[in-house]
Amino acid sequence: MNTILSIAAMNIKFVTPRGLLEAVHEVSLDIPVGSSVGIVGESGSGKTVLSRAAMGLLSGSTVRREGKVVFDGKELTTMTREQVRNEFGTGMAMIFQDPMTALNPVRRVGTQIAESLRIRLGMSKKAAVVRTIELLSLVQIPDPQAMLRKFPYQLSGGMRQRVMIAIAISCSPKLLFADEPTTALDVTVQSQILQLLSDLRRELKMSMVLVTHDLGVVAGNTDYVAVMYAGEIVEQAPTSELFANMKMPYTEALLKSIPTIHMQSGKRLAVIEGRLPDPTSRLQGCSFAPRCPYVQPKCTAEHPPLVNAGNDHLYRCWFPLGQTIARKQ
């Protein structure tokens, strides 16, 4: 299978006054061409840092980075910043959680989209406007002509996110990074935006990385899922395989904690007790061991490796779910 993006043995540390903070630890991940991959984890799990690093957006004196990122046959990690910048738009594009901060508040929507077309694709003014209208209708904005003249603050959160998506796909990227694209939105708008993203992905033959904290968002919108915990991938599988055959207690706990409309009302929700381990000191054993309901002595003593269970299903657990091992609950 061809991969559009390949992350190999990625390690990312930040220099902080409290010492080295390990945000990403030995992560390898391939994004196959045309697929949609979800990266799921809680705040502080390293999912955002990983996606920034994968796009070559992480630099500065406080970052220590190791590993290799290959995008479309080109190694991003050895490129200069200028070269990485050239990959944006045509190669890859991204959308963020809060579209308000990514849009210029004092310029009209039409001008902003047309400008990026003119700069990056060298379009004429007229062609850029025509294409802008086309893009706005592609992201299903009603009355694109009127939208051209609006300012970002006049739009609802959902409309702003649509405009951001229009900008992101304006140069037909091969890979779209969506970092919590629907977290700030209402559920109704969330489902619309997710639907739009999958439609566009099929239509434009894009690959997509969907970064989110919500397994529910991942379920219907991705082909593969990687679950991150404390800077590591703890489970990774094709989406249907993952939900049908969970191996990692953490993934199960994450799934159980989602409020759904099918649970009994007035009943307590399942929660993951405790909190993420301190990122400045890596635990000797499994990083989830202190919160794991099935913890065994071995879990706190030895760090579990990433094991392949077949079917492309990797997990990092000494005592995976679904195996007949006596567990003390």
């Binding site: 559920v187 109704t188 969330q190 529910g216 968002v217 379920a219 249907s240 939900f243």
Partner: peptide, 10 residues
């Protein structure tokens, strides 16, 4: 209907 359901088969 718009609440996300954590089940790919849904």
């Amino acid at each position: 209907d718009s609440v996300p359901v954590p089940d790919p088969a849904y």
